[in-house]
Design a protein around this nucleic acid. Structure first.
Lengths: 214, 214
DNA sequence: CACTAAACGGAGGAGATTCCTCCACTTGAT
DNA sequence: ATCAAGTGGAGGAATCTCCTCCGTTTAGTG
């Protein structure tokens, strides 16, 4: 929080890292609902130590996922550097889905406003414009069906991540089949128009606000 | 269980129905994890009454979902009566997704062996052959991409149902957009081959066995 | 080395939750 | 009118999760 604090003692700093590492692993494997007691055990540290360092789970989440969320935004920006409109979009989408397929916690943070605090919130805001630019370029080039909306992107990521939760323990890459089907369904020309309107920005916000992780 | 039991007293029968109705609603809204206490409250009945009638949640689940699961199998069989290979398949898939999008409990029962008992298990077994026939006819007619496997069908249903959970409270039909995209991705000719092998029957079984509902 | 502030661990209390039994009371059927 | 069948829901047992507290240990300093 305040940056003018004296540095932690060496052992304290070491434990802080251990806690963050353990939390990262557990959040990825099991989602954000793991208890701080679990994290302490995995970190090889007493619960007290965890609570002394982090006020609550949200603090840990914010610390851990700010960077990851930022990376997603960066991914979209970097993808734009690839001049191929379809390839840049498809690659970005695949990467995002891969990230979320491998990290239950990240998915929750990305899809629900109810987690993380200021830093994560800021990172979250950077994503939409970047995705919009990428998608609009692909649509302008006639590579992606024109009725796709940026608000569909998180939904697609949600689907592949869910398939990954379901099939992952048995077959780690099966989610890519679903993404493959979806990608083929995104290309122009689209055989049939989409049967329902896209979510508006406002609706996306309400959805993200209401959602409790799986 | 044993069918040679004397009939229930009128009030008991009435309460039994109330409990089943309440359970059906709650399972649909919230999934199978609702407590029997919740069900009792919704049914306007004491907990004791619920426990006297149903040994545990599984008994309720089995009672309630045998029919629904059977209907899904029937759906596939009936769809085969439509001579149009694409339309019959697409309609069936849409129906299945709609069922599961509107009922969290049904989805769990359909996707996890861990719920329901004998009657549900039997209904579950009828589904695969019916779906396989429908799909193979569509593929033979060149309407559906040949690399789609029957084992992909439950995964597709899972995706749309999940989107429905997520967006449903704000916009009940948005899941149809995702299904629309997927359906377009299922048609031949497929722009790109699927990037991972389908689950084998054996793998599907292991997945269904391991899975705990969301 | 000796000293002390900082850090540590983890037992355990408080508060929720869920499951399910039990029994005094009510009611349907004959 | 009788009574077996049925009812409601208080409350005990078993878990969980959160988080504090304090006796003990340790890193850093002169």
């Amino acid at each position: 929080m305040s940056s003018d604090t004296r540095p932690l003692r060496a052992d304290a700093e070491r434990n802080r890292r251990r806690i963050l590492d353990a939390a990262k692993d557990l959040f990825a494997e099991q989602g954000l609902e793991v208890t701080l007691d679990d994290i302490a055990r995995r970190a090889g540290v007493g619960v007290g130590t965890v609570y002394r360092r982090f006020a609550n789970r949200e603090a840990l989440v914010d610390e851990l996922f700010e960077e990851r969320m930022g990376q997603i935004a960066d991914l979209a920006v970097e993808a734009y550097a690839d001049p191929d409109p379809w390839n840049s979009f498809a690659t970005f989408l695949t990467r995002v889905c891969a990230e979320q397929a491998n990290d239950r916690g990240l998915r929750t943070v990305a899809l629900s406003t109810a987690h993380g605090t200021d830093r994560v919130a800021r990172a979250r805001k950077r994503i939409l414009p970047a995705v919009t630019a990428l998608l609009e370029r692909a649509q302008a080039a006639g590579a992606v069906r024109p009725d796709l909306s940026p608000s569909d992107v998180p939904l697609i990521a949600l689907t592949t991540a869910t398939v990954s939760d379901y099939t992952g323990p048995v077959s780690g890459e099966t989610w890519r089949r679903i993404l493959g089907i979806v990608l083929d369904g995104l290309r122009t020309p689209a055989p049939s128009p989409l049967p329902a309107p896209a979510l508006t920005i406002d609706q996306v916000e309400r959805v993200m606000h209401a959602w409790e992780a799986p």
